[in-house]
C-alpha cells in the first residue's frame, strides 16, 4: 500500500543538459518509449525517479506499522494470516522499490537511515492512528483502493525498472484491496457494534483517503517535467474524483454515512456532520465531496501529525535493534550451512 502521489517535488530545470539529447529523450517519452538502464537521461530525471521510488519504498516500510499493530489481535485464523501476509507484502514492496533507487545511485542502508532520522519523507496517511479493528478494514479498503488507482497509472509510466516493479506490486495490491472489501462487507453485515466500529473508522479515514492523492494540482501541471516525463501520469484532482465516484456510492450502499469530521491532535473525531455535497451530479456523472482540510495535510507533512513521532520512533528502534544481526550476517562468507 502506498502510492507516490504526494511528494510534489519541484524538479530542477535541465540546466547544463545537452539540448539535443534532452530533445531526443523527451521525444521518446512522448512516443511512449520506455526508458531503460543505460539510456541517456537528464540528471533531474535520474534524481526525480530515485526520490520517487525512495519515497514510495519508505511509505511501504512505514505503512507496515499501523496495520502491524493488529496482527496479534486479528479475530480469526484467516484474518490473522491475511493481515500478516499483507504487512509482509509491504515489506517486500519496500525491498523491491529500494532496489530501483539503489540502481539510480543511493544505497539501501543510507535510505533506511535517512528514513528513521527523518531526513526523507513517506506517505502522510501512515501518520494517523488505527485504534480499532475497523480501521484495519478501512485502511485496506479505502487506502489500498486509492493506492491501486494511483499505482495502476504509475505502471503506465516511462521508467522501465519502476514499471516492472509496479506491475508485480499491483498484483499483490489486488489482494489487499479485496481482503479489505471482504472485511468491510463482513462488518457491515454484522452486529450493531460491528457496524458502529466500521462507521467510526470510516469517519477517521474518508478525509485521509481524499488527501491520499495529494494537494490540488497547480495550473499547467501537465507541462511540468513530472508529467511531461511520465513519472506521474494522472493529475491528483482527476484521480481523486475517480476515487470518489467509485467509493462514495459503494459506501452509501453499504449503509455508511459520509461525514465531514473535525479531529483533535491525536487524529480522533470530535464532531461530525453529514457531507451534503456528496451527491451525484446527473450532468457530469461525478460525485461531489467536501474538500479535506489542507492545512491539516501540510501540518502532518511537516511532521506534526498524530503519529509521526511514534512511527519513526518504532522504526528507528527496530533498525537499531537489528544492527548486530546485519553485522553478524556480513561478518563472514558462509557458503555451506550445517546439514539439517
Amino acid at each position: 500500500m502506498s502510492g507516490a502521489a504526494n511528494p510534489v517535488q519541484p524538479m530542477c530545470p535541465c540546466e547544463g543538459e545537452d539540448p539535443e539529447k534532452l530533445a531526443q529523450f523527451e521525444q521518446r517519452i512522448a512516443e511512449g518509449v520506455h526508458i531503460e538502464p543505460g539510456d541517456w537521461m537528464p540528471e533531474a530525471y535520474r534524481q526525480g525517479m530515485l526520490r520517487m521510488a525512495e519515497h514510495h519504498a519508505n511509505s511501504e516500510i512505514i505503512g507496515a506499522l499501523p496495520e502491524g499493530e493488529w496482527i496479534t489481535r486479528a479475530p480469526s485464523l484467516r484474518r490473522k494470516l491475511a493481515l500478516t501476509a499483507k504487512v509482509q507484502d509491504e515489506v517486500g514492496h519496500g525491498q523491491m522499490l529500494y532496489r530501483v533507487s539503489q540502481e539510480l545511485g543511493k544505497s539501501r542502508d543510507d535510505m533506511l537511515r535517512d528514513l528513521v532520522m527523518g531526513k526523507t519523507k513517506y506517505h502522510n496517511c501512515f501518520n494517523y492512528p488505527a485504534p480499532t479493528w475497523g480501521d484495519i478494514a478501512m485502511i485496506q479498503w479505502l487506502i489500498d483502493g486509492a493506492a491501486i488507482m494511483n499505482q495502476k497509472t504509475l505502471a503506465d509510466g516511462a521508467y522501465g525498472p519502476y514499471v516492472r516493479t509496479m506491475n508485480r506490486i499491483n498484483m499483490e495490491e489486488a489482494f489487499h484491496f479485496k481482503s479489505g472489501e471482504d472485511m468491510v462487507l463482513t462488518l457491515m453485515s454484522g452486529t450493531k457494534l460491528q457496524k458502529q466500529m466500521t462507521q467510526d473508522a470510516f469517519d477517521r479515514w474518508w478525509a485521509v483517503s481524499l488527501m491520499f492523492f495529494g494537494p490540488h494540482d497547480k495550473p499547467g501541471a501537465e507541462t511540468m517535467p513530472a508529467m511531461r516525463w511520465r513519472m506521474k501520469i494522472e493529475k491528483n484532482d482527476s484521480l481523486r474524483q475517480r476515487f470518489v465516484n467509485r467509493f462514495a456510492p459503494a459506501a452509501k450502499d453499504l449503509g455508511l454515512i459520509i461525514n465531514v469530521c473535525a479531529k483533535d491532535e491525536h487524529g480522533y473525531v470530535t464532531s461530525v456532520r453529514e457531507d451534503e455535497q456528496c451527491v451525484r451530479d446527473e450532468a457530469t456523472g461525478n460525485w461531489g465531496f467536501t474538500d479535506p482540510d489542507w492545512d491539516e495535510f501540510f501540518r502532518v507533512i511537516r511532521g506534526n501529525g498524530p503519529c509521526n513521532a511514534h512511527r519513526l520512533n518504532l522504526r528507528r528502534f527496530s533498525h537499531e535493534q537489528g544492527d548486530w544481526v546485519r553485522r553478524a550476517g556480513a561478518h563472514g562468507t558462509i557458503t555451506t550451512p550445517p546439514a539439517a
Binding site: S107, D109, H310, N313, L314, E320, D323
Partner: peptide, 22 residues
C-alpha cells in the same frame, strides 16, 4: 497491540555507523 509496538523508545545520539548494502 503488543508491547514492543506500543512503548516509546529512548535514543542517545546518532545511529550506529551504517553497514552498507549486501
Amino acid at each position: 497491540m503488543s508491547k514492543r509496538r506500543h512503548i516509546t523508545y529512548e535514543f542517545d545520539g546518532d545511529l550506529p555507523e551504517g553497514t552498507g548494502d549486501d
